[in-house]
């Protein structure tokens, strides 16, 4: 851990919050993508069956 001196809160806070926000964004995007893929496949399956 480098010597952060009096900037420890600012630097660690910045890195922490930024990484956290990026992780949340990526996770939510991936989860929604997966869900949409599944739901669309399900509905297309249904239409193929009934159509």
């Amino acid at each position: 851990m480098p010597e952060l001196g009096k900037y420890v809160f600012a630097v660690l806070g910045s890195y922490g919050i930024s990484v956290a926000m990026l992780v949340v964004l990526c996770t939510l995007s991936l989860m929604r993508a997966r869900k949409m893929r599944r739901d669309l496949a399900a509905i297309e399956q249904r239409m193929r069956r009934d159509g």
Partner: peptide, 27 residues
């Protein structure tokens, strides 16, 4: 690169979502 990746991924999702809305309306 992260921006590009996220936009590619999310656009896929939007395309699928739109497709789903069309199919649901048709159904």
């Amino acid at each position: 690169l992260l921006f590009v990746a996220l936009v590619l991924l999310r656009t896929q999702t939007e395309i699928r979502a739109r497709r789903m809305r069309v199919l649901l309306a048709r159904e």
